Amino acid sequence: METKPIEPVSRAEGLSWLVSRIRPRAGRTMVAIDGVDGAGKTTFAGDLAAELTDSGLTVIRISLDNFLNPAEVRHAQGRTSPEGFIADTYDYERFVDDVLEPLGSEGCGRYRSKSYDFGTETPLTPPWQVAPDAAVVVVDGLFLHRDRLRNARGRKVWDLSVWLDVPAEESVRRLAERDGSPSDVDDPRIRRYVEGQRLYIERYRPAERADLVIDNSR
């Protein structure tokens, strides 16, 4: 694979770059779409999946938001804890067992796409699904470049990964527009999330770990 672009690219350029590198690959390909809240991860992942499907590829869409921990685990360090937001939001054990291992290049292909329903705060055990030997697995979510999602050799588990670059102020503005949350990045009511994501960026440097950085601020 060619060296990744040095500077962030546009959304259109990023889609083209990814499709051109995914199409020639054999077997299963794992692609991560990472970014802060409001970066546009789900939308971009959907657009990429559509482009790949139009190219004749089989695509499996997974969202890490469907692998949450129960509320008592998510808030074990307090409802305002940025560290707790990073450490306790997601059930990585289920995510690895149900998605990463079975859908990896050497996995059995027997996977589940979700383990938790946030709306009802209910654990889920849906029927197993079976992926074809040749498929592209597109995963969107927060914190996808953290150390916990690296293999025994310390390398990321993704065949390709993306960091959607969006300033914190724009992220908060989008969330306020979408969810009615506070629009001020310094509002204490959203400190857990804003500071947690700042800690993630400082600690794990996802833009450096990603294969592609896309300017998704517009």
Rank of each mutant, 00 (worst) to 15 (best):
E72L: 07
L52S: 05
E101H: 14
P132H: 11
L103K: 07
G38S: 10
L52Q: 07
P123R: 09
L144F: 04
A134K: 13
S63W: 02
Y111M: 12
H75Y: 15
G27Y: 08
E121W: 04
Y92E: 08
L48V: 03
G78V: 09
A26P: 04
A152P: 00
T122I: 07
D97W: 01
T122S: 14
N151A: 08
A131T: 06
F44V: 06
D133W: 11
C108I: 12
T80N: 12
V137D: 01
L57F: 03
G56T: 12
V137A: 01
P70N: 05
E83K: 11
A131V: 07
A39Q: 03
L52M: 09
R153H: 05
A49E: 07
R25L: 14
R74V: 02
P126D: 10
P123I: 13
L149I: 01
A71K: 10
A71G: 00
V36S: 15
P132I: 00
I86D: 00
P70W: 08
R155K: 11
A135T: 02
F95W: 05
L142I: 13
R155G: 07
A71Q: 08
D47P: 00
E51S: 11
T43E: 12
V139Q: 06
L142G: 06
R25M: 13
Q77S: 15
R146V: 01
Y116I: 03
R28P: 04
R148I: 13
G40Y: 11
D54M: 12
A32R: 03
P82V: 02
D97Q: 15
V139C: 09
T80Y: 08
T43N: 05
V99I: 15
R150T: 14
R79W: 11
E101N: 14
L52G: 05
S55Y: 01
D133P: 10
V96M: 10
C108G: 13
G40I: 08
P70E: 06
F67G: 00
L144H: 01
D97K: 15
I86P: 00
G56D: 10
A39R: 02
G154K: 12
L103S: 09
T53F: 02
V31L: 07
F95E: 06
D140L: 01
G119E: 14
L52T: 07
P82S: 02
M30S: 04
G154E: 11
V138R: 03
T43S: 14
A39Y: 03
V137E: 01
S105K: 13
G104A: 13
N151W: 05
A26H: 13
L68D: 00
L124R: 04
V130F: 04
R25V: 08
L100A: 12
L68W: 09
G107T: 10
T29D: 07
G27A: 12
V138M: 02
R153A: 10
D98E: 12
R112I: 08
E106A: 14
Y92L: 15
F143K: 02
R28G: 05
I86K: 01
E121V: 00
T53I: 01
E72I: 06
V139L: 10
G40P: 08
T89Y: 03
V31T: 09
G141Y: 03
D34Q: 08
F44D: 00
D47Q: 14
R150K: 09
D88F: 04
D117C: 13
G40T: 07
T89F: 03
V96K: 14
R155Q: 14
V99M: 10
S113D: 11
L142C: 12
